[in-house]
């Protein structure tokens, strides 16, 4: 079985982003970029399935600027076999990305597609579900455990009240939650090896997909800041303030 893993280049999760002075967007000038953490977990899961003999090949695809090759190479250092880079001049919307991924799915015919549940820049949590809808496949989102058995996959999902387990017919779409696995550290010899793995460079036109965006960003602002309050000296003073000043306790 082949596994397809779409990955996204995003701002490093340790960076506290700032809004540009003109409120047009966040300022990403000279900011460290990395693979989206949930995508990293997706790559790790696919590579583990290959190491267990469940998968035979892991293909990584990224859609975005040319520099996203770094994130594909990093995924190859973890163990992905080859990559596809689809470069776009402008940021592609979730629906456009899902349409491009659908075209890649048609070409590659994977048994499983594993994606991150959301990217930490736009925080949408939707591309995997959109791809599932466009391909007519079943989906297991927010996965904390993935078990392939014959022609189906069992996915334990993190839901609001606890955990839900679903069974999906293959081919299927899985999106990863934080606790699915802990991605390995990338070793230098593997980084060197990854440089020689095959990478296909494409554009949306190669897949006859039009990059359009029906949602425009009018403005990006910093969130309302909370002012630091006061320090209280004792539990008694705290209770007094909550009752008589904040009036949130009776």
């Amino acid at each position: 079985m082949k596994i397809l893993v779409p990955v996204k280049r995003v701002v490093d999760y340790n960076v506290k982003v700032r809004v540009k002075a003109d409120h047009s967007d966040v300022d990403l000038t000279n900011v460290k970029m990395d693979i989206n953490p949930f995508c990293d977990i997706a790559v790790e899961e696919a590579v583990r399935l290959k190491e267990q003999g469940v998968a035979t090949e892991v293909v990584v695809v990224s859609i975005g600027e040319a520099k996203a090759e770094e994130q594909i190479r990093r995924s190859m250092a973890i163990g992905a076999d080859r990559g596809i880079l689809i470069t776009t001049e402008q940021a592609a919307s979730s629906l456009t990305v899902a349409k491009l991924l659908k075209a890649v799915v048609e070409q590659e015919q994977p048994g499983l597609v594993i994606l991150g549940k959301q990217s930490i820049d736009t925080d949408n949590n939707q591309t995997g579900q959109m791809l599932a809808a466009l391909t007519g496949m079943a989906q297991g989102t927010c996965a904390s455990k993935v078990t392939v058995e014959g022609d189906s996959v069992q996915v334990v999902r993190e839901i609001d009240g606890g955990l839900q387990t679903v069974g999906l017919k293959l081919p299927a779409i899985v999106t990863t939650d934080l606790r699915l696995n802990e991605p390995r550290y990338v070793k230098l010899p593997d980084i060197m090896k990854a440089k020689r793995k095959p990478l296909d460079k494409k554009t949306p036109a190669d897949f006859s997909v039009e990059v359009k965006n029906t949602v425009s960003t009018l403005k990006v602002e910093p969130p309302a800041q909370r002012e630091a309050g006061i320090k209280v000296g004792s539990v008694a003073e705290l209770i007094d303030k909550l009752k008589n000043e904040a009036k949130v306790l009776s």
Partner: peptide, 15 residues
Amino acid sequence: PIYAGNAIATVQSND
């Protein structure tokens, strides 16, 4: 909210 709530985007849809 975007970027974990570090920025708030105003978006307009023509869908």
